[in-house]
Design a protein around this nucleic acid. Sequence first.
DNA 1: AAATATTCCAACCGCAACACG
DNA 2: ACGTGTTGCGGTTGGAATATT
Length: 226
Amino acid sequence: MVRQPYLKKGTWSRDEDQADCLYWLQRSGKSSRLRWMNYLRPNIRRGNFTREEEETIVRLQKTLGNRWSAIAARLPQRTDNDIKNYWNTRLKKRVISENKNSTAATTSTTETNSSMVENSSGADSSSMLTNILLDSPVSTIDDLLEPPAYSCFSPSGSDLVAVDDKYSMGTDNYLVSCWETQSYLEQPQMIEGLDWEAVLPNSELWHSHHQQCYDPLDDFWINPLI
DNA sequence: AAATATTCCAACCGCAACACG
DNA sequence: ACGTGTTGCGGTTGGAATATT
Protein backbone atom coordinates (compact mmCIF):
# COMPACT_ATOMS: atom_id res chain seq x y z
CA MET A 1 0.00 0.00 0.00
CA VAL A 2 1.35 3.42 -0.91
CA ARG A 3 1.81 5.64 2.07
CA GLN A 4 0.04 8.98 1.93
CA PRO A 5 2.78 11.60 2.39
CA TYR A 6 0.56 14.28 3.90
CA LEU A 7 -0.48 12.24 6.90
CA LYS A 8 1.03 13.31 10.18
CA LYS A 9 3.00 10.80 12.24
CA GLY A 10 4.63 10.58 15.64
CA THR A 11 3.48 11.32 19.14
CA TRP A 12 -0.04 12.66 19.56
CA SER A 13 -0.51 16.13 21.09
CA ARG A 14 -3.11 16.99 23.69
CA ASP A 15 -5.09 18.95 21.10
CA GLU A 16 -5.20 15.99 18.80
CA ASP A 17 -6.57 13.88 21.61
CA GLN A 18 -9.58 16.21 21.82
CA ALA A 19 -10.88 14.35 18.78
CA ASP A 20 -11.17 17.45 16.66
CA CYS A 21 -12.03 16.27 13.16
CA LEU A 22 -9.47 18.56 11.57
CA TYR A 23 -6.73 16.97 13.59
CA TRP A 24 -7.99 13.47 13.06
CA LEU A 25 -8.11 13.96 9.34
CA GLN A 26 -4.37 14.62 9.42
CA ARG A 27 -3.79 11.14 10.80
CA SER A 28 -4.34 7.85 9.12
CA GLY A 29 -7.36 5.87 10.22
CA LYS A 30 -5.02 3.25 11.46
CA SER A 31 -3.13 5.68 13.66
CA SER A 32 -6.37 7.17 14.99
CA ARG A 33 -7.75 3.76 15.79
CA LEU A 34 -4.58 2.75 17.59
CA ARG A 35 -4.60 5.93 19.64
CA TRP A 36 -8.20 5.34 20.58
CA MET A 37 -7.76 1.69 21.40
CA ASN A 38 -4.63 2.09 23.50
CA TYR A 39 -5.09 5.46 25.12
CA LEU A 40 -8.35 7.37 24.65
CA ARG A 41 -10.88 4.58 24.99
CA PRO A 42 -12.93 4.79 28.22
CA ASN A 43 -12.14 2.46 31.12
CA ILE A 44 -8.54 1.94 30.16
CA ARG A 45 -6.14 1.29 32.98
CA ARG A 46 -2.52 2.11 32.37
CA GLY A 47 0.56 1.30 34.39
CA ASN A 48 0.63 -0.01 37.97
CA PHE A 49 0.04 -3.67 37.23
CA THR A 50 -1.03 -5.57 40.31
CA ARG A 51 0.67 -8.71 41.50
CA GLU A 52 -2.38 -10.72 40.42
CA GLU A 53 -2.25 -9.20 36.96
CA GLU A 54 1.44 -9.96 36.70
CA GLU A 55 0.88 -13.57 37.63
CA THR A 56 -1.96 -13.87 35.16
CA ILE A 57 0.19 -12.47 32.38
CA VAL A 58 3.05 -14.78 33.20
CA ARG A 59 0.79 -17.80 33.35
CA LEU A 60 -1.07 -17.01 30.16
CA GLN A 61 2.11 -16.12 28.31
CA LYS A 62 3.44 -19.51 29.22
CA THR A 63 0.40 -21.28 27.85
CA LEU A 64 -0.65 -18.98 25.01
CA GLY A 65 2.65 -17.56 23.93
CA ASN A 66 2.75 -13.99 22.64
CA ARG A 67 -0.96 -13.83 21.86
CA TRP A 68 -1.32 -10.47 23.53
CA SER A 69 -4.87 -9.83 22.42
CA ALA A 70 -5.99 -13.13 23.90
CA ILE A 71 -4.17 -12.34 27.11
CA ALA A 72 -5.63 -8.82 27.18
CA ALA A 73 -9.11 -10.28 26.82
CA ARG A 74 -8.60 -11.83 30.22
CA LEU A 75 -7.31 -8.71 31.88
CA PRO A 76 -10.16 -6.20 32.00
CA GLN A 77 -9.24 -2.62 31.10
CA ARG A 78 -5.77 -3.56 29.94
CA THR A 79 -4.72 -3.22 26.32
CA ASP A 80 -2.71 -5.74 24.40
CA ASN A 81 -0.08 -3.13 23.71
CA ASP A 82 0.27 -2.30 27.39
CA ILE A 83 0.57 -5.94 28.32
CA LYS A 84 3.06 -6.56 25.56
CA ASN A 85 5.19 -3.64 26.67
CA TYR A 86 5.01 -4.70 30.29
CA TRP A 87 6.05 -8.20 29.40
CA ASN A 88 8.90 -7.13 27.17
CA THR A 89 10.31 -4.57 29.56
CA ARG A 90 9.78 -6.22 32.91
CA LEU A 91 8.12 -9.60 33.21
CA LYS A 92 10.24 -11.39 30.64
CA LYS A 93 13.41 -10.53 32.49
CA ARG A 94 11.87 -11.56 35.78
CA VAL A 95 10.68 -14.90 34.43
CA ILE A 96 14.04 -15.64 32.85
CA SER A 97 15.77 -14.77 36.07
CA GLU A 98 13.37 -16.92 38.09
CA ASN A 99 13.81 -19.80 35.69
CA LYS A 100 17.55 -19.60 36.13
CA ASN A 101 17.13 -19.66 39.88
CA SER A 102 14.69 -22.52 39.79
CA THR A 103 16.97 -24.51 37.52
CA ALA A 104 19.80 -23.99 39.94
CA ALA A 105 17.58 -25.12 42.76
CA THR A 106 16.02 -28.08 40.94
CA THR A 107 17.79 -30.66 43.00
CA SER A 108 16.73 -29.17 46.28
CA THR A 109 13.08 -28.67 45.25
CA THR A 110 12.38 -32.17 43.99
CA GLU A 111 11.64 -33.44 47.41
CA THR A 112 9.62 -30.34 48.27
CA ASN A 113 7.22 -30.92 45.37
CA SER A 114 6.50 -34.44 46.43
CA SER A 115 5.34 -33.21 49.81
CA MET A 116 3.34 -30.20 48.51
CA VAL A 117 -0.01 -31.41 49.79
CA GLU A 118 1.18 -31.68 53.30
CA ASN A 119 2.79 -28.25 53.24
CA SER A 120 0.05 -26.38 51.39
CA SER A 121 -1.99 -25.15 54.29
CA GLY A 122 0.30 -22.29 55.17
CA ALA A 123 1.34 -21.35 51.65
CA ASP A 124 0.26 -18.30 49.69
CA SER A 125 -2.66 -19.57 47.64
CA SER A 126 -2.09 -17.27 44.71
CA SER A 127 1.49 -18.29 44.07
CA MET A 128 0.56 -21.84 44.83
CA LEU A 129 -1.96 -21.73 42.02
CA THR A 130 0.58 -20.24 39.68
CA ASN A 131 3.10 -22.89 40.51
CA ILE A 132 0.61 -25.64 39.98
CA LEU A 133 -0.61 -24.27 36.68
CA LEU A 134 2.88 -23.63 35.41
CA ASP A 135 3.73 -27.19 36.19
CA SER A 136 0.45 -28.51 34.83
CA PRO A 137 0.25 -30.62 31.69
CA VAL A 138 -0.95 -27.65 29.60
CA SER A 139 1.85 -27.46 27.12
CA THR A 140 0.45 -26.09 23.89
CA ILE A 141 -2.13 -23.65 22.67
CA ASP A 142 -4.19 -26.51 21.37
CA ASP A 143 -4.54 -27.84 24.86
CA LEU A 144 -6.44 -24.72 25.82
CA LEU A 145 -8.42 -23.91 22.71
CA GLU A 146 -10.50 -27.02 22.86
CA PRO A 147 -12.98 -27.66 25.63
CA PRO A 148 -11.90 -30.55 27.76
CA ALA A 149 -13.07 -33.94 26.71
CA TYR A 150 -14.36 -34.50 30.17
CA SER A 151 -15.46 -32.05 32.82
CA CYS A 152 -17.27 -31.77 36.09
CA PHE A 153 -17.89 -29.39 38.95
CA SER A 154 -16.32 -29.34 42.31
CA PRO A 155 -18.42 -30.26 45.31
CA SER A 156 -19.02 -26.59 46.12
CA GLY A 157 -20.94 -26.25 42.88
CA SER A 158 -19.35 -22.92 42.08
CA ASP A 159 -15.90 -24.10 41.18
CA LEU A 160 -15.59 -25.40 37.69
CA VAL A 161 -13.11 -28.18 37.40
CA ALA A 162 -12.30 -29.28 33.90
CA VAL A 163 -10.76 -32.65 33.55
CA ASP A 164 -9.38 -34.63 30.71
CA ASP A 165 -6.21 -36.46 30.03
CA LYS A 166 -4.33 -33.29 29.20
CA TYR A 167 -5.12 -30.69 31.79
CA SER A 168 -7.26 -29.45 34.60
CA MET A 169 -7.78 -26.19 36.35
CA GLY A 170 -9.62 -24.77 39.32
CA THR A 171 -11.34 -21.47 39.90
CA ASP A 172 -12.40 -19.52 42.94
CA ASN A 173 -11.09 -21.75 45.63
CA TYR A 174 -7.53 -22.20 44.53
CA LEU A 175 -6.33 -24.83 46.90
CA VAL A 176 -9.46 -26.93 47.01
CA SER A 177 -9.84 -26.90 43.24
CA CYS A 178 -6.23 -27.53 42.57
CA TRP A 179 -5.96 -30.39 44.91
CA GLU A 180 -9.14 -31.85 43.57
CA THR A 181 -7.61 -31.38 40.19
CA GLN A 182 -4.47 -33.16 41.19
CA SER A 183 -6.61 -36.08 42.25
CA TYR A 184 -8.67 -36.04 39.09
CA LEU A 185 -5.64 -35.98 36.92
CA GLU A 186 -4.30 -39.13 38.35
CA GLN A 187 -7.62 -40.89 38.38
CA PRO A 188 -10.98 -39.18 37.91
CA GLN A 189 -13.09 -40.70 40.59
CA MET A 190 -15.79 -39.81 43.03
CA ILE A 191 -14.79 -37.50 45.80
CA GLU A 192 -16.75 -36.69 48.90
CA GLY A 193 -19.92 -34.75 48.24
CA LEU A 194 -19.69 -34.81 44.46
CA ASP A 195 -22.69 -35.99 42.50
CA TRP A 196 -21.04 -37.37 39.41
CA GLU A 197 -24.29 -38.14 37.66
CA ALA A 198 -25.32 -34.50 37.88
CA VAL A 199 -22.10 -33.01 36.61
CA LEU A 200 -21.08 -35.39 33.89
CA PRO A 201 -20.88 -34.00 30.35
CA ASN A 202 -24.24 -33.29 28.70
CA SER A 203 -26.13 -33.24 31.95
CA GLU A 204 -28.44 -30.28 32.50
CA LEU A 205 -26.11 -28.70 35.02
CA TRP A 206 -23.15 -29.26 32.78
CA HIS A 207 -24.85 -27.43 29.92
CA SER A 208 -26.02 -24.53 32.05
CA HIS A 209 -22.55 -24.00 33.44
CA HIS A 210 -20.98 -24.18 30.02
CA GLN A 211 -23.33 -21.53 28.69
CA GLN A 212 -22.25 -19.22 31.43
CA CYS A 213 -18.57 -19.91 31.27
CA TYR A 214 -17.68 -20.82 27.75
CA ASP A 215 -17.61 -17.96 25.28
CA PRO A 216 -18.16 -19.40 21.80
CA LEU A 217 -17.23 -16.12 20.14
CA ASP A 218 -13.95 -16.10 21.93
CA ASP A 219 -13.65 -19.82 21.46
CA PHE A 220 -11.80 -20.10 24.66
CA TRP A 221 -12.32 -22.32 27.60
CA ILE A 222 -10.45 -20.82 30.51
CA ASN A 223 -12.40 -17.55 30.74
CA PRO A 224 -14.18 -18.52 33.92
CA LEU A 225 -11.01 -19.71 35.49
CA ILE A 226 -9.45 -16.25 35.79
C1' DA B 1 27.03 19.63 35.39
C1' DA B 2 27.62 17.14 31.28
C1' DA B 3 27.94 13.01 28.69
C1' DT B 4 26.57 8.49 28.07
C1' DA B 5 23.86 4.36 28.84
C1' DT B 6 19.66 2.22 29.90
C1' DT B 7 14.76 1.81 30.46
C1' DC B 8 10.24 2.42 29.11
C1' DC B 9 6.36 2.90 26.19
C1' DA B 10 3.67 5.14 22.43
C1' DA B 11 3.33 4.49 17.92
C1' DC B 12 4.68 2.58 13.43
C1' DC B 13 5.06 -1.27 10.16
C1' DG B 14 3.89 -5.28 7.64
C1' DC B 15 1.16 -9.13 7.40
C1' DA B 16 -3.01 -11.96 7.66
C1' DA B 17 -7.79 -12.36 8.21
C1' DC B 18 -12.05 -10.53 7.37
C1' DA B 19 -15.91 -7.88 5.07
C1' DC B 20 -18.06 -6.47 1.20
C1' DG B 21 -19.27 -5.37 -3.48
C1' DA C 1 -14.48 -16.65 -7.12
C1' DC C 2 -12.11 -12.49 -7.12
C1' DG C 3 -10.37 -7.84 -5.99
C1' DT C 4 -10.15 -4.15 -2.83
C1' DG C 5 -10.51 -1.86 1.45
C1' DT C 6 -10.60 -2.41 6.49
C1' DT C 7 -9.45 -4.30 10.82
C1' DG C 8 -6.68 -6.67 14.16
C1' DC C 9 -2.48 -8.45 15.56
C1' DG C 10 2.40 -9.00 16.99
C1' DG C 11 7.11 -7.43 16.19
C1' DT C 12 9.83 -3.57 16.19
C1' DT C 13 11.50 1.12 16.62
C1' DG C 14 12.26 6.07 17.99
C1' DG C 15 12.64 9.09 21.30
C1' DA C 16 11.59 10.86 25.95
C1' DA C 17 12.66 10.02 30.65
C1' DT C 18 15.65 8.33 33.94
C1' DA C 19 19.88 6.35 35.80
C1' DT C 20 24.71 6.00 35.84
C1' DT C 21 29.38 7.44 35.15
